[in-house]
Design a protein around this nucleic acid. Structure first.
Length: 849
RNA sequence: GGGCGCUUAGCUCAGCCUGGUCAGAGCGUCUCCCUUACAAGGAGAAGGCCGGGGGUUCGAAUCCCUCAGCGCCCACCA
């Protein structure tokens, strides 16, 4: 027994953090069987600058589950990773170093970013792909050190030896392997197809990364000329796409326009003949009921273009500008090429936004605009990280077919145990509304390359339909520097040679494999077999349609199974005014300072108080509560353990009654943990604990100090309760519980067994009400003294309790403790038929000063 | 437009599934107390027609219907 004179929270994080690391407290024992293991698919946080308190919330939630199951006897596989590949890192590197990646620039082995010369006025300097990737690697290493420090401070019980990064060699190998396996089964395909495209990042994006934003626009009513000399009106918010118009479309049942179906009309300004066609997707209520089909204004255009076999006329380039075209050339066929090309010349090089105004102006000049454009607020699709609306651009991309698995994926979503259950609805609505196959290629640099090359035929054409793949044993490969089997480096880019696929994978194509990466799939089959399918996927609700969905999808494709049985979904952290925290609002709170102010256990208390799925307000007051709780645990433990009296088996009715109460609490706490309701577990524990210190400690204090048999019973009960409470609090407050544990126990409290009701068997047959009634009488006496504004030491000369006879009997068995604790001279009990308990208190005369 | 969640003391929230000691907790406010675990403490008090309306029931914060407000998810940009 080694109870400090003045226990303190200061320094506990450093002390126990080091000890846990040194003794391997959280090290995973891979010799255990699948049934003995509880495996967690930990979210790898994006390494882009600093962590925020949202991470603290959700990672604490996961850690609570991990610690609980570890104590329940499961061997917990709790890895950690950093998501460092992808656009977030590229952007950070661009801003941090003032560079941008230009793939055409060759690698410079002597490159030194600190001596970069920046031309006057230039925002950034172009560097080669190889050097750019090196800078990405360098910056992520620095960021990851900071992340690790914070997660260690938070006390996450992860096994750091299983650390992975999504750009690391293992992740690249597994991503490429996963891709090749899909390719072999024709579950990955490349196609030259219209895809949502971000004109600033100049990359294709997937449906999951698209978000709608409300934008102001203008409806333009535009006249097309019919062959018979009449005109027809259409409405469009994108007049700049008129040169890309390939048809007008109306609903087959819309009698206003069906007579025109099959006829030809001429586009205004450009005089290009286009057919009038009919399709179910045209909505008679929208606009004038007949719409312009362009290649491409939106995804509906793609459908019409594809299903109606319309020609392709592209005017928007990959950079979001209008590209020059000869409108008299085949495929365009303007009836007045000279005039049309003059108009085109004015538009060429303009952004779509500028071209829009310009075309509107010219339409007005040509008398083809009806009335004034009408303001409208409508939803426009954006890349979630982008700043300009997405365009639909035709390009060659790699896809994985989500659409044909939709029903299967809905079933899998229904099989998964969601916590809270209603989060399953988000997955369902997402899957039900999938409208594109998953585009997994990105025209970016810092990511996992596609492990394919393409042959170049003798005439210099790239044969995209005959990809060359590496041997699986050679992974990971970089097709930009590695040479495919059967070729030599000199053949790169030459007729008869090969070319490497220039793209990298969608970051989710890697992240969707986190169970495989953490579990070392196909590298350590023994390990993977012990972990997979996993038990738990913890994550926040914002990435259900990305990380969660894609992981379920990949697991379905590769293994035909769910990747985990349970998903625990955390909420966001809102600022104290309940606004979502974001860097742009400047209301992001830096976690480090919070830890310093309140201690790790205090911050974890705040996080543990928030239920899964609920957005939690950042609340330092609750952290103060958490700190109070931690200090209380220290002091109450000091009392329970510092007593000279030898503990004996709890025999006194009050002592056994308190333990019986604790037994009930423990049952509920355990049930709450099993149901992923950690906040309820904490609240139950806390309520008991504060009563325990307020009432029970006061009730038995005199007896405990006095010693003897009765004192031994009290001290025995105190220690039994403390033993249980410390372990039950351990997931929430790992530092303070470990500290107290170390005063009187061997090993780590975090490797001890979760308390069981059997440990409290000494309370068999005891009635919890004895403790409850005794606490109530003591409370009544305290209240009277507080109302009379006297010290608690002032004696009560007479206390009369009116209650039902069974309760009076219980007061009888605890009478000595009640009288001592309340300094009651005479305690009378009066049987009462009424249900309500009444306690009358007569205080001693107060001596005037 | 479809869906989900929320609305309970000044604040943050529990209770609702399984109607009846459920009207609760903490913070904040106010009052008091240096009590041999704890004064960077402790004890206590005041505070709410449980969003509005209707219904079921002997009885509704709790079940049903409806309305409103807030938040989120999803939806083919004419």
């Amino acid at each position: 027994m080694d109870v400090p004179e003045k226990p303190s929270l200061d320094g506990l994080e450093a002390k126990w953090g080091e000890w846990w690391e040194a003794t391997g407290t959280y090290r995973f024992d891979r010799s255990k069987s699948r049934e003995q293991i509880f495996s967690i698919d930990t979210p790898p946080p994006t390494v882009s600058g600093s962590l925020h308190v949202g991470h603290v919330l959700s990672f604490t939630h996961t850690d609570l589950v991990a610690r609980y199951h570890r104590m329940r006897g499961r061997e917990v596989f709790y890895p950690i990773g950093w998501d460092d590949n992808g656009l977030a890192t590229e952007r950070r590197v661009q801003n941090y170093f003032g560079v941008r990646c230009e793939p055409a620039i060759p690698y410079d082995p002597d490159f030194d970013v600190s001596s970069l010369e920046r031309p006057d006025g230039a925002e950034s300097v172009a560097i080669g792909r190889g050097n750019f990737i090196e800078l990405c690697d360098r910056l992520t290493v620095e960021d990851e050190r900071v992340f690790e420090e914070l997660f260690r401070l938070l006390g996450l019980s992860v096994d750091w030896s299983y650390l992975y990064t999504t750009i690391g060699e293992r992740s690249r190998r597994i991503s490429q392997l996963g891709f090749l396996r899909l390719l072999r089964r024709e579950l990955a395909y490349s196609a030259e197809a219209p895809t949502m495209w971000d004109v600033d990042f100049r990359t294709a994006v997937a449906q999951a990364e698209i978000e709608d934003r409300e934008l102001d626009g203008l409806y333009h009513r535009v006249l097309f000329d019919r062959e018979d000399g009449a005109t027809i009106q259409i409405e469009t918010s994108r007049p700049e796409l008129i040169p890309a118009c390939v048809a007008l479309v109306t609903h087959p049942s819309d009698e206003r326009y069906t007579p025109l179906v099959g006829s030809t009309v001429l586009t205004p300004l450009f005089r290009i003949p286009v057919p009038v066609v009919a399709h179910e997707l045209a909505e008679p209520e929208k606009g004038t009921g007949i719409a312009m089909v362009c290649t491409f204004g939106d995804l509906t255009d793609v459908t019409w273009w594809r299903e109606l076999g319309l020609p392709l006329r592209v005017v928007v380039e990959r950079d979001g500008r209008i590209g020059g075209r000869d409108l008299g050339a085949p495929g365009w066929g303007s009836r007045d090429p000279v005039a049309a090309n003059a108009v085109m010349a004015e538009l060429t090089g303009l952004s779509v936004k500028k071209a829009r105004g310009k075309v509107a102006e010219m339409l007005r000049g040509a008398g083809a605009l009806v009335g004034e454009p009408e303001p409208v607020r409508h939803a426009v699709k954006f890349y979630e990280k982008g700043e300009r609306p997405l365009e639909v651009i035709t390009s060659r991309q790699w896809f994985v077919p989500t659409l044909r698995f939709r029903d299967r994926l809905l079933e899998r979503g229904a099989e998964l145990s969601w916590h809270p259950a209603y989060m399953g609805a988000r997955y369902r609505s997402w899957v039900e509304n999938l409208n594109q196959d998953w585009c997994i290629s990105r025209q970016r640099f810092f990511g996992v390359p596609f492990p394919v090359w393409y042959p170049i035929d003798e005439r210099g054409r790239v044969r995209y339909d005959e990809p060359i793949v590496p041997d699986e044993a050679a992974l990971p490969v970089d097709p930009q520097s590695d040479v495919p089997p059967g070729f030599t480096a000199e053949q790169r880019g030459m007729p008869g040679g090969f070319v490497g696929d220039p793209d990298v994978m969608d970051t989710w194509a890697t992240s969707s494999l986190t169970p495989q990466i953490a579990g070392r799939w196909e590298e350590d089959p023994d390990l993977f077999g012990r972990l997979f399918p996993m038990d738990l996927r913890p994550q926040a609700h914002d990435i259900i349609r990305t990380w969660l969905f894609y992981t379920v999808f990949r697991s379905e494709l590769e293994f035909g199974t769910l990747p985990w049985s349970d998903a625990a979904i955390s909420g966001f952290v809102l600022d104290p005014d309940r606004k979502k925290m974001s860097k742009s609002k400047g209301n992001v709170i830096v976690p480090h300072e919070v830890f310093e102010r309140h201690s790790s256990d205090a911050v974890r208390y705040w996080a543990g108080s928030a239920r899964l799925g609920i957005d939690a307000a950042f609340d330092e007051k609750q952290m103060k509560d958490g700190r109070r709780l931690a200090i209380k645990i220290l002091n109450a433990s000091k009392f329970a353990l510092g007593m000279g009296t030898e503990p004996a088996e709890p025999a006194a009715p009050l002592d056994r009654s308190m333990l019986a109460t604790l037994r009930g609490v423990l049952r509920e706490v355990t049930e709450a943990f099993d149901a992923y309701e950690h906040a309820r577990a904490l609240s139950l524990l806390e309520r008991f604990f504060w009563g325990f210190t307020d009432d029970y400690l006061e009730l038995v204090k005199p007896r405990a100090y006095a010693g003897g048999q009765a004192g031994g019973s009290a001290v025995g009960a105190l220690r039994t309760a403390l033993d249980v409470l410390l372990r039950a609090f351990a997931p929430f407050q790992p530092y303070v519980t470990e500290e107290v544990w170390s005063w009187w126990r061997e090993g780590s409290v975090h490797r001890s067994a979760w308390p069981t009701e059997d440990e409290l068997a000494v309370s068999d047959g005891a009635e919890p009400e004895v403790y409850e009634v005794a606490a109530a009488v003591l409370g009544a006496v305290r209240r009277e003294k507080a109302l009379a504004k006297v010290s608690l030491r002032v004696p009560a000369t007479l206390v009369t309790v009116h209650d039902l006879p069974p309760y009076l009997e219980m007061i009888g068995v605890a009478e000595a403790d009640i009288r001592e604790a309340g300094k009651i001279e005479e305690l009378r009990t009066v049987p009462s038929g009424e249900g309500a308990r009444r306690v009358d208190v007569v205080l001693a005369e107060i001596q005037p000063d």
